[in-house]
């Protein structure tokens, strides 16, 4: 079953066309990688799924994006509810300048969960799910900005899963991290895919092969090829895909 279906998506910023006729189906509880050279529209694409691009002036969109069959740009859709269902982890870890605890509790508070016991329970569970609990359980009241980069990124993942989304979008979540932290995040992605649908933008093709079941290759705002990850990397059907994965450009 597909969680997200995108039909003929075109995105413009003012006069510049960023995405061209993007069609993709993202199945439930799997990891889908988006690869492609810088500036090919991958980030713009995932930011369209939680409507983060709405904030940018000059953003125009045509086509449809369905989440569980519901068109997310329909006027009846509440952006706040959408973003509760579609969480996002950013390229650079961006914890708030608050305590570790308050970072994870933030989304809960915003969504009206104030019962202290429930909040504490959810914070603990989320930190455990994000494989961070053991490292921070003694310093929940300390500022999150004192954590290492890798810990901060796992905290951002914990913050996202605390509000129990259905989809987690990850925009190059490891690009600012060292290899050990990267491994930890990748292990975490493997664990999380049982419960969440994950869409990850990555520049690292090995990472795509390690974590994802499906991969789409973006080039100049178009999806050149989408396939099961091993098929895409072992037998690319399109010449451009082959050139990219063999390192002939990008």
């Amino acid at each position: 079953m597909n969680r997200i279906e995108v039909e003929n998506l075109n995105v413009h910023f003012d006069d510049a066309q960023i995405l061209k006729d993007v069609n993709i189906k993202i199945p439930k509880n799997t990891v889908t990688s988006l690869i492609g050279p810088s500036g090919c529209g991958k980030s713009t694409f995932i930011r369209t799924i939680n409507r983060m691009n709405d904030l940018i002036s000059g953003f125009k969109k045509e086509g449809h994006i369905y989440l569980d069959g519901q068109e997310i740009y329909d006027p009846s859709v509440d952006v706040v509810e959408l973003r509760k269902k579609v969480g996002m982890v950013f390229q650079k870890p961006n914890p708030f300048p608050k305590s570790v605890f308050d970072n994870v509790a933030y989304g809960l508070k915003v969504h009206g969960i104030t019962d202290k016991n429930i909040v504490e329970e959810r914070v603990r569970e989320s930190l455990k799910s994000a494989a961070l609990w053991e490292e921070v359980k003694e310093k929940l009241e300390k500022s999150a900005l004192g954590l290492s980069g890798g810990q901060q990124q796992r905290l951002c993942i914990a913050r996202t899963i605390a509000i129990e989304p259905e989809v987690i979008l990850m925009d190059e979540p490891c690009s600012a991290l060292d290899p050990i932290s990267t491994t930890k995040i990748e292990d975490l992605i493997h664990k999380l895919k049982k419960e969440y649908t994950i869409v990850i933008v990555t520049h690292n093709m090995q990472q795509a092969t390690r974590v994802s079941k499906f991969t789409s290759f973006f080039l100049h705002g178009e999806i050149v090829e989408s396939a099961r990850t091993e098929r895409l990397f072992l037998e690319p059907k399109d010449k451009r895909t082959e050139d990219y994965i063999t390192g002939r450009f990008g």
Binding site: N50, M52, L55, V80, E81, L82, R83, K84, G87, M88, F90, K92, N94, P95, F96, P97, Y106, G107, V110, H111, C156, R159, T160, I163
Partner: peptide
């Protein structure tokens, strides 16, 4: 930093 605002909005904050 803009990233704080994005992080908050992405969690569904108004």
């Amino acid at each position: 930093p803009e990233s704080y605002r994005e992080g908050s909005l992405a969690l569904g904050a108004t």
